[in-house]
């Protein structure tokens, strides 16, 4: 029988992989991949707790979170395409004019 801790450990591993991608990768699309992996780890956590504590809110929040993540990806990819038109590059280190 699967325990809650097994699911939580999988989410910890996925979250760490996402953090690694955000720190190391310079390609903007790969950074979006990392953000998606982290968001999915969070959703899995919500569902795992919702099932084991028997609470509906976890599933409702997961549904909201999935919809928000979809909107976020659409906007992020739009920004990447605009940045590519301007710089002909999707390396985040090359987007110098956004530097503070």
């Amino acid at each position: 029988m699967n325990q809650l801790i097994d699911f939580v450990l999988v989410t910890v591993v996925l979250f760490s992989i996402g953090i690694y991608g955000l720190v190391v990768k310079r390609n903007a699309i790969r950074m979006i991949f990392s953000i998606e992996i982290i968001a999915n780890a969070a959703n899995l956590n919500l569902i795992a707790f919702s099932r084991h504590v028997h609470n509906v809110e976890g599933q409702v929040f997961a549904l909201f979170s999935i919809a928000i993540a979809a909107a976020e990806v659409a906007v992020a990819l739009g920004i990447i395409i605009i940045a590519y038109r301007l710089y002909k590059e999707i390396d985040v280190h090359e987007f110098r004019s956004l530097k503070g």
Partner: peptide, 16 residues
């Protein structure tokens, strides 16, 4: 699906 949440699983497949 392992966590008995088929509705969220369906939503996940459709959206992601």
């Amino acid at each position: 699906l392992l966590l008995d949440s088929p509705f969220v699983a369906m939503f996940q497949i459709t959206v992601y």
